[in-house]
Design a protein around this nucleic acid. Structure first.
Lengths: 110, 110
DNA sequence: AATATTTATCGTAATATTGCAATATATAAA
DNA sequence: TTTATATATTGCAATATTACGATAAATATT
């Protein structure tokens, strides 16, 4: 098979899974790291920072963009990529909620 | 190829990617949701909660366990699964740091 | 011991992901 | 207009993931 049964799960579960999946590759984590490090948003040199060929980097950027984690706008011949704060906020809140739930339960059985 | 160039990235990047990857499937998000919902840690009925066959659920549980997101101990004939707070804490801190970095930069260019 | 119950593992088919060379596209500079 | 530069797309090979039937393993119950 290899085909996720997306339609059998809730929209919220699918959305969270999609964002997480987009972060599920070291290259994409490295891209985010780099975007945070540089001062400017013009990020044409991401390719030089990563140990991957240009088409591969382009593909990873596309996936991050599709998942809503980064935003990109054309700036002449370069592309301006930056992090979409909203997506990070969503994830942070999700994990905050989990931690809050765990505190409330106070069951430490395992 | 299909083979991630793990060795070309930092340990931290790989670790974050691994945890994120483990969350990158709606079934695994649903499992976490259920673990938070139930009061007891004995979770033998996860299979009945999910729209997937027992071997598939078992496989997803294994992945969550390998990534350190859940912990499981044998309780007689059943297995006691629960969330590993530490893993969630790691993720939360990661996103907290990102948000904090974004605030500091205050560049809203895209 | 025999049976039931619960979870794990194996094997396998279908699909997805990763990575890159080659090429296309699109703008900037000469 | 030609050339250089930057990014995207296509096509493809290698590997990974998803899902499940069949079966194994391990304990509880009778």
């Amino acid at each position: 098979m290899g085909l996720t049964k997306t339609q059998h799960f809730t929209t919220q579960h699918n959305e969270l899974a999609n964002i997480s999946k987009a972060l599920g590759h070291p290259a994409r984590i490295a891209i985010i790291d780099y975007l945070l490090k540089v001062d400017t948003c013009i990020c044409g040199d991401i390719v030089n920072e990563l140990p991957l060929a240009q088409p591969t980097v382009s593909q990873h950027l596309k996936e991050l963009k599709n998942a809503g984690i980064i935003k990109g706008t054309i700036e002449g011949t370069a592309i301006c990529y930056c992090i979409n704060e909203k997506a990070i906020e969503t994830l942070k809140q999700y994990f905050d909620t989990i931690l809050w739930s765990l505190e409330k339960k106070k069951i430490q059985c395992c």
